[in-house]
Simulated scan of single mutants.
Amino acid sequence: MWATEHSAVADVEPQAVWAALRDLHSGVKLSERSDTFELHGPFAVGTELSVTPQGQDTFRSTIVELTEPQVYADRTTFNGLTLLFRHTLTPEGPGRTRVTHRLEIDGAEADQVGPEMGPQISTDFPDTLDELFDAARRQATTGAA
């Protein structure tokens, strides 16, 4: 297995961060740079979604973990590899939330493929969290992401 993660703290409550995360994975673009998500059913464990990263082909993923407002995870399987994307939200005191965005690559070739593929996939994690936090702040002040 190969893994990487990026954490950052936002000056916003976990519920607002969760609402922005739910919106994104339900198809609401948080910015013009956001990946595109299309949910194929309810926002719930077991539901598939189509994910189209900027400038790339669409792939299917399945929601595998969902504990509001703490954890969201989806899994993608292709070419004998499993990619698990997990967002973990942790309160960091009044009005603050730590979000950890983790990528795990597993499978027979993960130790060989992960060191090259993983950084290519996760290079935008800091920007992705910034977009999520901006949307959460909008959510907290206006009630809409």
Results as ranks from 00 to 15, higher is better:
F59V: 08
V12R: 08
D127H: 11
T128P: 01
W2Y: 12
T82F: 04
E68K: 05
V9A: 04
P42L: 05
S7A: 13
R137N: 15
W18Y: 07
E116P: 00
L24W: 15
G41A: 08
L39S: 12
D130G: 09
D127F: 08
T47N: 09
S26D: 14
E65C: 00
I121R: 05
T77C: 06
W2K: 01
R86G: 05
T76Q: 04
F37P: 02
K29F: 03
W18K: 01
L89K: 02
D127M: 06
R138D: 15
G114V: 02
P119I: 00
P91A: 05
P53N: 03
G95D: 11
G55Y: 04
T141S: 13
H40T: 07
T97V: 09
A135T: 03
G107Q: 03
K29V: 08
D106G: 07
G27K: 10
E68F: 01
W18M: 06
P91C: 01
V99D: 15
T141E: 15
T58L: 09
R22W: 09
A135C: 06
D23W: 01
Q112I: 14
F133E: 12
E104S: 10
G114D: 01
E38Q: 10
Q139G: 08
A10P: 07
L129A: 11
L84H: 02
E38P: 02
T88R: 09
T77I: 03
V71A: 04
L66M: 12
P126C: 07
P42N: 11
Q70L: 00
G143E: 13
L83V: 10
V71W: 06
A144N: 13
I121S: 08
T4M: 03
G41E: 05
D23G: 14
G80W: 00
T142R: 01
E65N: 05
P94C: 00
S34L: 11
D134T: 15
G107V: 12
G41M: 05
T97G: 11
S122V: 10
G27Q: 10
F43A: 04
R60T: 12
L129W: 13
L83K: 06
V99H: 13
T58Q: 14
R138Y: 10
L21M: 14
F85A: 07
I63G: 12
R75H: 07
L103V: 11
L30V: 15
P42E: 15
F37I: 01
L49G: 10
A19P: 02
L83S: 06
D35A: 14
R75E: 14
I105R: 03
P69T: 11
L132M: 08
E32K: 09
T128Y: 12
T100W: 06
G118A: 07
P14K: 07
D35C: 07
P115K: 00
D127W: 06
E65R: 11
L81V: 04
A19L: 03
G143P: 02
E32G: 14
P126Q: 08
T128K: 00
G41P: 02
T67K: 12
K29A: 15
T67Q: 14
T36R: 13
D111N: 09
A73R: 00
F78S: 09
D130Y: 12
S122R: 05
T76N: 01
T100E: 09
